[in-house]
Structures are given as C-alpha cells and as structure tokens.
Design a protein around this nucleic acid. Structure first.
Lengths: 244, 244
DNA sequence: CAATTTTCATTTGTCAGACATTTAAATGTC
DNA sequence: GACATTTAAATGTCTGACAAATGAAAATTG
C-alpha cells in the first residue's frame, strides 16, 4: 500500500484509495484487521487525523468497520446484500432526483428489468412470496389509504415480485430501480379509479405467478407499465397546463 | 439538521446522517453551500475534527465536494451518472467477490437484464453503437489477446449493447452487473474455440441490432447466456476434479 | 482449583489549538 | 483600464492530549 507522491488530491483521499485498492485486489480479505491508526499514520507519514479521515471514507462505503478497545481496530467488512441494497437505494434516489430524469425514462428502466424477472419468478415463487403479494394487494384496496402509503405498498409488492425470482444479485440490482422510483410515484395523485386498475393488474400478476404462467405475468406487467406511463403523462400534462 | 442525543453511534456518523438526510429530503439542493466547518462545529457542538470526519464520509459517497480558499467550502454535489456508475461497480464487484456468489447466479442476473435491453437497443441503436460493437468484435478475433484483454473487450461490447438501449437509468443499473462479472469471467480460460464461438454470437447480436430485429437479438443473447453458463460449469467441474 | 473481580495496556473517539495552503475578492499602482 | 499586491476566509494538515471502550492478563476470593 503506497500513495502517489505526485498526486494533487487530499492525502486522506489518497490513503483511502490505497486501502480500497488493496481490498478490491484481495490483498486484504474479509475480517482482516488493518494496522492501528497510529501505525497507519507512521506508514503513510501523515498525522493520525488524516488517517482517520481516510478510514471514515472507507466506513461510509461499508468497506470497513471499526471497533474500539484493546484488540479493536478497523476490519475489512463483508459487504452484505443488505448494506449494498441500502447504498444502491440512496445512490439511485439521488441520481434520479438530481438529474431531472423523466418519469418516462425511469419507468421504462424499472419495468424492463422487472419483466426480466417475471419468467424466473413464475418458476420459483414460493408460497411466502405469493402471500406477501396478496397481503399488499389487500392493503392497496383499503379505502382511506394515503397516496404515500399506497406507493409504499406498491414498492413492497414489487419487491416481493423481484425476490420471487430467487436471484439475490437481481434483487440487489432492482432494489435501486424500484425504490428510487417511489419519490416520482409519490407525485402522482391516485384516484380511486386508478387505484382500482392498478390493484386489478397486481391481481393478474399474482394470479399468473401462482399459476406459474410466465407469459401471463409478462403481459400483465407490460400492461401495468403502459398504465403507469399513462398516469405519468397525465400528471405531466396537468402540470404543464397549470404552468402555462 | 439535528442529531439524536440518544444515539450510540459515532458523532461523525450522526452528523453525516443529518446532512445526508437534509440532502435527500431536498432541504439542501445541488450547489448549495454548507456552512463552513467551523460553523458546523459550533452548530453541532463538536470539534472541527469531528465535523471533518463527517464531511469525508459524505464526500466518499459523492454527495458533496469541497473547495479550498476564500468563498470555498463544501457544496452539495450533483451526483452524475458517471460517478454513480463508479460507485455501483465498486459495490457490485465487492458484493460478488465477498459473498461467494456463484458464477451461475451472477450470469443469470446479468443476462436477464441484458435481454431486457435488447428490444430497446434494436429500436434505438445508433451507428456509433454498432461501430463500437463491431470494433470490439474485431479485437476479440485477434490472436494473441490475453484472457484479461479478451474479457475487457467483452465488457466494452456489452456496455455498448446496453447503452444502445438509450436509457441512462438502465445503463447505470447494468453497469454494475456487467462490470462486476468481469473478475468472475477472468477466471475462465478461453480456448481458441470458445473465443470463436463467442465472437460468432457477438456477431449475431450486432447483426440483429443492425437489422433492428429484436427477436433475433434476444435469441442470440439467450444462446450466449447458455454458452457462457456452460463454460462456467466446465471451469467449476475442472476445479472440482483438481481438488478432489 | 475454579470462579470472579480487578487491573492494565491498547485502540478508537473526541477535543483544542496551531500553522500551511489555497483562493478569490479587495485594494493599490501604473 | 490593466496589472500586481494584499488580505480575509476557508480547507488541509499536524500535534498533543484526554475520554471511553474492551479484551487479556493478573489478582483475589470461595
């Protein structure tokens, strides 16, 4: 682990990069202990404060965890799917909110990936997955549900659908797409009629998965995608009319 | 922006969370300047060192950027697709390498998503995308290419395919899946014959996109997925034989 | 001897204060 | 007006200190 003496970047950034590279390259493996802050400071010839800033950068990416006390220190962290989900969701949400990504584009991406899950979900869905989906469908039919609660339930429904595909890598990748869409979906006012339509489509999806009918599931998802896009266009048109 | 006095987490983590929440909630928008480190230290009633550790955490997630000098400071960063790609790739790569994700599962996820791109790519691919793909195909046919260079070219080919779908969100989501697979792919020794097969399949994909034939593209991708999985199984079997 | 308590060294977490460096605005000079 | 200089404000880095946690080892106790 060496830092480039010609770099213009902050020392803490350089040190973080050096350690990160060592982890990615496999020189440091899960649960390995890094040298203590004092030792790292000596190795890199910087102060302990600078080392600490570097370590905090790595901690922010869940690459290391720290433990206080004797025999404590910084350890290479096993990045769990759970943590990776979280980071992916934060990143995706910010990406969408900061880059004026259109509802249309986000929708397309999300449903394209979800449809890719459908065949696997039809094949592998467990009774548990179906039960979760049915429960969310039921909730979505309750009157008096706020739009936000409706959207949250929608996210839960779709996560169950994705998880039903039984591929954790796919679940991880899709977590971002599905959850990051929620703020955009929250901007839509769901009328009683549009909710009814969505619930019916969810019902079709659940029925298709229960019957292990991948083609029906795909068709229902496509219809849902079309309908969601239509709702989005409606909102955009209403806003345009208000503003001009 | 307040921190929870009952939390047991590090102060720097709490402060980072408070600022991150403010950004996600939209209280701080792109290019807003945060208070100076000295001011933040006063607000949160901590030392400047602690504030700096918090800011480094946020910088590691590309949420802020800092600028030295008068009228410098920490600014809310517009998370670009580029930066998000990078983070996604790092995270995905580590996730796969640290969690013993099987080649099979990673492959399945990757090709499922790639196939979801095929119809859009067939419809929207530009001459540029095609040219990139053709160039990579040509490179892959060169004799004397190392396995790593072959894999790198493979990644470039598939990225062009994904980008051809013309949906940046999809490109971002897939960047992780495609790039993170590379270390796993690098473990495969590509014989002259397997390379030839792969190049032919790439050719079929490029031809299909050129002809805007989404069904042919999908079929070719499925064949490539099957073949890749087969190669993976071959490697796994060889390793099992060596170790047993 | 075994179980429990105490001590202790190590390590991270936090603080205070200092100085170096960078930067752009403000000021001075021709 | 154009250019050089000064200056104030901010981040980057260093030093030294103390607090708090923690597990191992030593001391104590039954």
């Amino acid at each position: 682990m060496k830092i480039d003496p010609n770099s213009t970047a902050d020392l803490s950034a350089q040190i973080a990069k050096a350690i990160r590279d060592a982890i990615v390259a496999g020189e440091l493996i899960v649960d390995d202990r890094l040298p203590s802050e004092a030792e790292l400071a000596e190795q890199f010839e910087v102060s302990r404060a600078t080392v600490r800033e570097a370590l905090k950068r790595l901690a922010a990416q869940s690459l290391i965890r720290t433990q206080r006390g004797a025999f404590g220190g910084a350890f290479v962290n096993r990045l769990s799917f759970e943590e990776a989900y979280g980071q992916q969701i934060t990143t995706s949400t910010l990406l969408l909110s900061m880059n004026a990504v259109s509802f249309e584009v986000a929708c397309e991406a999300r449903y394209a990936m979800e449809r890719a899950c459908a065949p696997m979900a039809a094949e592998r869905r467990s009774a548990d997955h179906l039960a979760t989906m049915r429960a969310e469908i039921h909730r979505q039919g309750q009157p008096g549900l706020t739009d936000e609660a409706f959207c949250a339930s929608d996210v839960a429904f779709h996560r169950a659908l994705v998880d039903a595909a039984g591929n954790p890598v796919l679940s991880y990748q899709l977590a971002g797409a599905v959850e990051a869409m929620q703020p955009l979906m929250n901007m839509i006012t769901f009328t009683a009629r549009s909710r009814e339509t969505i619930v019916q489509l969810h019902q079709r999806i659940a029925d298709a998965l229960e019957a292990r009918a991948e083609d029906l599931a795909d068709q229902a998802l496509q219809d849902l995608a079309d309908y969601t896009r239509e709702l989005g266009r409606g909102v955009a048109a209403a806003r345009a009319a208000r503003n001009g």
